[in-house]
Protein backbone atom coordinates (compact mmCIF):
# COMPACT_ATOMS: atom_id res chain seq x y z
CA UNK A 1 0.00 0.00 0.00
CA UNK A 2 1.32 3.40 -0.81
CA UNK A 3 0.18 6.44 1.09
CA UNK A 4 2.49 8.88 -0.67
CA UNK A 5 0.57 11.76 -2.13
CA UNK A 6 1.55 13.10 -5.51
CA UNK A 7 0.32 15.21 -8.35
CA UNK A 8 -0.49 13.69 -11.69
CA UNK A 9 0.28 15.88 -14.65
CA UNK A 10 -2.31 16.18 -17.35
CA UNK A 11 -1.10 15.05 -20.80
CA UNK A 12 -0.76 18.72 -21.87
CA UNK A 13 1.27 19.58 -18.78
CA UNK A 14 3.52 16.56 -19.20
CA UNK A 15 4.08 17.31 -22.89
CA UNK A 16 4.87 20.97 -22.18
CA UNK A 17 7.27 20.06 -19.35
CA UNK A 18 9.09 17.58 -21.57
CA UNK A 19 9.43 20.18 -24.33
CA UNK A 20 10.73 22.77 -21.81
CA UNK A 21 13.24 20.27 -20.42
CA UNK A 22 14.56 19.48 -23.90
CA UNK A 23 14.83 23.22 -24.68
CA UNK A 24 16.74 23.90 -21.43
CA UNK A 25 19.07 20.98 -22.20
CA UNK A 26 19.78 22.28 -25.69
CA UNK A 27 20.43 25.82 -24.42
CA UNK A 28 22.82 24.54 -21.74
CA UNK A 29 24.65 22.41 -24.31
CA UNK A 30 24.90 25.45 -26.58
CA UNK A 31 26.32 27.52 -23.69
CA UNK A 32 29.00 24.87 -23.05
CA UNK A 33 29.90 24.79 -26.76
CA UNK A 34 30.01 28.60 -26.95
CA UNK A 35 32.39 28.94 -24.01
CA UNK A 36 34.53 26.02 -25.23
CA UNK A 37 35.00 27.37 -28.75
CA UNK A 38 35.22 31.00 -27.57
CA UNK A 39 38.10 30.01 -25.29
CA UNK A 40 39.93 28.43 -28.21
CA UNK A 41 39.13 31.42 -30.44
CA UNK A 42 40.40 33.92 -27.88
CA UNK A 43 43.58 32.08 -26.93
CA UNK A 44 44.31 30.67 -30.37
CA UNK A 45 47.07 28.05 -30.74
CA UNK A 46 48.59 29.35 -27.48
CA UNK A 47 46.00 27.33 -25.59
CA UNK A 48 47.97 24.16 -26.44
CA UNK A 49 51.29 25.63 -25.29
CA UNK A 50 51.52 24.70 -21.64
CA UNK A 51 54.07 23.10 -19.41
CA UNK A 52 53.62 19.37 -18.99
Amino acid sequence: MSDKKGLVLSPAQAKARRARSIAIGLVLAAMVAIFYFATIAKFGPAIFERAL
Binding site: S2, D3, K5, G6, L7, S10, A16, A19, R20
Partner: peptide, 26 residues
Protein backbone atom coordinates in the same frame (compact mmCIF):
# COMPACT_ATOMS: atom_id res chain seq x y z
CA UNK B 1 -2.90 -5.84 -0.10
CA UNK B 2 -4.94 -2.74 -0.61
CA UNK B 3 -3.87 -0.26 -3.20
CA UNK B 4 -4.93 3.27 -2.44
CA UNK B 5 -4.55 5.82 -5.21
CA UNK B 6 -3.60 9.03 -3.50
CA UNK B 7 -2.57 10.75 -6.70
CA UNK B 8 -4.58 13.81 -7.61
CA UNK B 9 -4.42 16.09 -10.58
CA UNK B 10 -2.80 19.49 -10.26
CA UNK B 11 -6.11 21.17 -11.00
CA UNK B 12 -7.86 19.24 -8.21
CA UNK B 13 -5.09 20.22 -5.81
CA UNK B 14 -5.40 23.86 -6.77
CA UNK B 15 -1.81 23.90 -7.98
CA UNK B 16 -1.00 25.79 -11.13
CA UNK B 17 1.36 23.76 -13.27
CA UNK B 18 2.57 25.44 -16.41
CA UNK B 19 1.54 24.32 -19.86
CA UNK B 20 3.89 26.86 -21.43
CA UNK B 21 5.94 25.54 -24.33
CA UNK B 22 9.36 26.73 -25.49
CA UNK B 23 7.50 28.58 -28.24
CA UNK B 24 5.71 30.67 -25.59
CA UNK B 25 9.04 31.54 -23.96
CA UNK B 26 10.46 32.45 -27.36
Amino acid sequence: MAIVDNHISATEAGVRLSEATPRDYF
